[in-house]
């Protein structure tokens, strides 16, 4: 009580003496708070831990026997790991959207807006912590993969490049997450929307099975799916699958540049929409 009083009269009318944190400092605080949430509620990590590991095991052992992948050195299990990692990274849009809609609903965004910090730090912090979140998932899957026989066979540089592509796509997914999180009013709505869109998008691709067995039209859709470019890029960089045949879609024959192109294109289109939606949602 008395201390507060003292602080008060020292500071005078306005507290210009108090220097708010820098932009990076504020982002860091948002990240710290979001990670603290994970520590308090470890079940938040289920989506990037138990779930993908379960997928790896289910697909590898249930379907693995009946899915032949011609030309894949390590067989179906090696073929599968890059696909599930790609799915996990696409799902980071999910994580961003849920986190953001929660922060908007429970007033955390309002609370930060009343403080003298850059408002963009809310988004940047949310995005960084989601990338960390997804990266934990990728790491856990890599460990699971290594345990069941998955290997990176094309050298250190290529191995790192594949992980970098995952992060780049994760970055692009953030914008989709911000857009969706700002568009809907409840966690349930976000869940419903993301589940019905992102889930098919990650399955209508080469993530879990080779596209050769699909009907023509489906094969066309699957091979031009950006998720397929990412998956194919990782398979080639890690030596987990055959190179795309000359009959495959053009992007699968050049998966690395196409993955980069998709990430930049999605960012260029979605980012302005996402920022506008967030600003509109949080301003009035």
């Amino acid at each position: 009580m008395t201390t507060l009083h003292a602080v008060h009269s020292d500071a005078g009318f306005a507290r210009e003496t108090l220097k708010p944190p820098s932009f990076l400092g504020a982002c860091g605080l948002v990240v710290r708070r979001n990670l603290l949430h994970i520590r308090r509620m470890p079940e938040l990590l289920l989506d990037v831990t138990i779930q993908p590991v379960m997928f790896v095991l289910l697909f590898a052992f249930v379907f693995g026997g009946s899915i032949a992948v011609p030309g894949a050195e390590g067989g179906y299990r090696e073929f599968l790991i890059p696909g599930i990692m790609a799915q996990t990274m696409i799902f980071s849009s999910f994580i961003v959207a849920i986190g953001l809609v929660n922060d908007l609903q429970k007033g955390f965004v309002d609370r930060l807006k009343a403080l003298p910090i850059a408002r963009s730090s809310i988004l940047v912090g949310r995005s960084l912590s989601s990338l960390i979140h997804s990266s934990i998932g990728i790491t856990i899957m890599a460990i699971t993969g290594l345990a069941i026989g998955w290997r990176m066979r094309e050298g250190f540089f290529n191995a790192v490049l594949a992980f970098a592509l995952f992060l780049l796509v994760g970055f692009a997914m953030i914008w989709i997450g911000i857009l969706v999180g700002s568009m809907f009013d409840s966690v349930e709505a976000v869940n419903g929307f993301m589940f019905t869109t992102m889930f098919p998008v990650t399955f209508l691709a080469n993530t879990f099975v080779p596209t050769e067995g699909m009907p023509d039209w489906l094969q066309f859709v699957a091979e031009w799916n950006p998720v397929s470019a990412l998956t194919q890029a990782a398979r080639e960089l890690w030596g987990n699958g055959p190179e795309a045949p000359a009959t495959a879609a053009y992007q699968l024959q050049h998966p690395v540049p196409f993955t980069i192109m998709w990430a930049l294109l999605i960012t260029a289109i979605i980012a302005p929409l996402a920022l506008r939606a967030f600003r509109r949602r949080s301003r009035d």
């Binding site: 009318f13 306005a14 507290r15 210009e16 108090l18 708010p20 708070r33 603290l36 949430h37 308090r40 509620m41 429970k106 007033g107 955390f108 309002d110 609370r111 009343a114 403080l115 003298p116």
Partner: peptide
Amino acid sequence: VRRSMGLTGQSATVDELL
């Protein structure tokens, strides 16, 4: 303005997990 004021909104905006 934000440096000079505090705001408590209509619904409590405390972070439930902290």
